[in-house]
Design a protein around this nucleic acid. Structure first.
Lengths: 135, 135
DNA sequence: TTAAGTGTATTATATCACTTAATACACTTA
DNA sequence: TAAGTGTATTAAGTGATATAATACACTTAA
């Protein structure tokens, strides 16, 4: 329910998931969608922690994963910056998407649903209320 | 890595997720796909615990959720049985699938991927190696 | 040089989810 | 009566998560 704008970044934090995961996911999303530009400075660890009213260590954990993802670069004494490599962002996006899709397809398989079933449901939602049977 | 057949049920247990969740997911899947028939007796709490070499309390937790799902019925002194209501199974399946799909679509949205992007990727995997660019 | 702002590391503590263990009780069936 | 059911309780241990307090190395600007 907590809604916060910090610099170019927007966060919605709740208690449904670990805090560092929510920060990670939402920062990833902002970078992948270009809501924060290539090369742009991220909020500092301390600043983000203060704004979100959480511990700096928790922010650090998310930031370190962002760097492992190749989405940010850190410059000691200066701060954390979004990577200036569009390739990094693109390849991260495709890799994570592939992972999500594969995992999702396995879930559907476990429920005995085919790709056609899924398509039908999604199209039903897009044309909201035009008579999609919904699975 | 642990692979176990217990009655009509098949389990693969590892340590990537809580044990009770894995039992729950795999039992749900077996019921949804009809691998265990309507009305059929499930392994007893103690038996399943012994076969999987885990604590009965952990099995209990999964079994209680199965009952809340409407997928099983318990008869004191007799055991746990798959529901005999095909409607229960069907409605559970659609409800859970809808939940998974909505959650998945949100993930894709967060990565800035459209439904067409997803379709392209999935079709590429189905025609394995016929030149799908993959996102 | 100094001060303020960076990322980073360490140690300690607390809480919670998950799991195990041991035991006991109520019920059903043979 | 005995064995097999689901169920409940209490206790304990482990690991992930999060906080707190400090300290250090580096960069930049005053």
């Amino acid at each position: 329910m907590e809604e916060q704008q910090v610099g170019s970044l927007h966060f919605q934090i709740d208690f449904s998931q670990p805090l560092y995961e929510q920060i990670l996911d939402q920062a990833r999303s902002a970078i992948a969608k270009g809501e924060i530009a290539l090369g742009e400075k991220m909020p500092s660890v301390r600043e983000l922690a203060q704004e979100l009213r959480i511990n700096p260590n928790t922010v650090m954990r998310a930031y370190q994963e962002l760097e492992r993802d190749g989405l940010t670069e850190k410059r000691r004494g200066q701060g954390t910056f979004v990577t200036s490599s569009a390739d990094n962002v693109a390849s991260f996006r495709t890799a994570l998407a592939a992972k999500y899709i594969d995992s999702f397809m396995e879930q559907m398989e476990n429920l005995g649903l085919s790709w056609e079933d899924i398509e039908k449901y999604v199209r039903g939602k897009k044309d909201s209320g035009t008579g999609g049977d919904g699975l």
